[in-house]
Amino acid sequence: MSLLMSATINEWVKLRARKKTVFFLALIAVLPFLGLMAVQRLQNGVGIAAFSGADYPIAFLGGLTLFVLPLLIFLSASDMFAGELGDRTIRSVLVRPVNRYKIFASKLLAIFGVTALGLLLGWISSTAASLFMDAPDGRWGGVAESALAYAAAAVPMFALGTVSAFLSLGFRNASGALAVSILVYAAAKLVAFAFPQIAAFLPTAYTDWHQLWIGGAVSFGKIAAIFSFLLGCGIVFYTSGSYLFEKKEV
């Protein structure tokens, strides 16, 4: 266990040392305030509220889980797998007395970690920004609800992380893996327009499942079904990825 922990810390150190990661996390922290400026212009100029302060964090979460976080996840996974396989730095990780299942797990844990951090930052920052907006119906109920929504949003993001790791293992070039991950993601999103029945069985259909957690109109059964689906996808891609990684010749 402590080896897995150490390996995870290592992956985290590498992730944090990359400018891209820092840039994306900074972006997540800044975006809610840029959004706030846009909303205020809308409010003062056009006169529409667009958001109650209480709803703003969840509206921001929509954008976060649609674009920013998936991109950050793809970026991290591409660097960790395709990138390290490509420049062979992966060897310096593998020739240590840590088996490859643990290395694979540590990389995914680091991806989960950066995703969770992104969500936490997004929540704090958008909640802070929302304090500058009117909340006619009170804001503290919204804070609790948005906290729940941000926590729930981690589930589909984690599933996306396992898919992205799996895809990335097919490449030996970080930018290639990134480009393909983005393309696959966009394609999966667009499939919904052509074949809605298929789209329901893609994890990408549930990046906004946090919407189901708010308002309380959706049955527990529905949430359980989607959770079981996302968990199933996660396990399938995790085990397949782990197996591929174990067999990888470097």
């Binding site: 080896l3 810390i9 590498k14 040392a17 730095t89 240590r96 007395p97």
Partner: peptide, 20 residues
């Protein structure tokens, strides 16, 4: 190959961490 975006010392620290 070392991780070029890390310092030499950091690279070694990563390795050292894996030997309890």
């Amino acid at each position: 190959e070392a991780f070029e975006y890390l310092s030499g010392r950091r690279n070694l620290e990563l390795a050292a961490r894996l030997y309890p």
